[in-house]
Simulated assay, not measured.
Amino acid sequence: MVLKCIAIDDEPLALRLVSEYVSRFPALQMVNTFEDAITGAEFLKNTPIDLLFVDINMPDVTGIELVRSLQAKPMVIFTTAYKKFAYEGFELEAIDYILKPIDIKRFTKAVEKAIDYYKYKNKPADDETDESLYVYSEYRMVKIDLDTIEYIESMEDYIKIHITNDKTVLTLIPMKKVLEKLPSAKFQRIHRSYIVPVNKIRSIQNRKVRLTNVELPVSESYNDFARNWSKQK
């Protein structure tokens, strides 16, 4: 597996640094670099790539505008000196958002996310060995191990993923879509507002699901699941 990359940045020194960092990863191949967004965008129209490193604050066309204009979007890692663009990176579902000056440890973390996500997206359809969920949170891609999920809660436009050690991940995604990302044998929706891991159900009684540390309601629409679970016990 080798991910084809390009980098776009109006600062030649920044381009050289990204290229040098990329050369340290056998799983990455730098195909080309560009000092302006317009030339880079033209290249992207005709050449499919896997991963784009792009500066945000560039003259003429910003990195945000460039990514928005792409019909076929590669994975994107934004590089910028400005924190104020973080929300736009979130809207465009960037893999990561690295502030300049870029150090190799931070760069490595972003690249590892991209490699993991590429493997996740390109696994065979019948491969059910992956034990992770990928969502966008805090302006970047977040990987969540399935066995750490305690339950998932709907909060209007967002969902809150409760994970072990009282931690939570907030992400902008519909419940229906996140349910599609989860293995149906391991996760069940019990209410319009809740999804639970089946192996963490301790009991179901009086339309209440008791998990390890919380009790959640079962709505009438999902009573069949409650009855079937009870029969299996």
Rank of each mutant, 00 (worst) to 15 (best):
S203M: 12
T47Y: 13
P74T: 06
E88K: 06
G40C: 02
E91K: 11
I204G: 05
K113R: 10
E35M: 14
L66F: 07
D147A: 05
P124G: 08
R202C: 10
T62W: 00
E35T: 15
L52G: 07
Y82K: 08
T171M: 00
A114M: 00
L17E: 13
K45G: 07
I163E: 07
L70Y: 04
E93K: 10
K186I: 01
V31P: 01
P124H: 05
I115Q: 05
E35N: 15
K121P: 01
F90G: 08
L51F: 03
I56R: 00
K84T: 14
Q188Y: 08
K84V: 12
L92C: 03
T79K: 02
V18C: 12
V67M: 09
V196M: 04
V142R: 12
D36S: 08
K113D: 01
L172D: 07
L146F: 03
M1P: 10
Q71F: 08
F43D: 07
S137A: 15
P48K: 13
K45R: 15
R192L: 09
E128G: 11
I95T: 03
R202T: 12
K83L: 08
V218E: 03
E93N: 14
L17R: 15
Y97P: 04
Y151I: 01
S184L: 07
F34N: 10
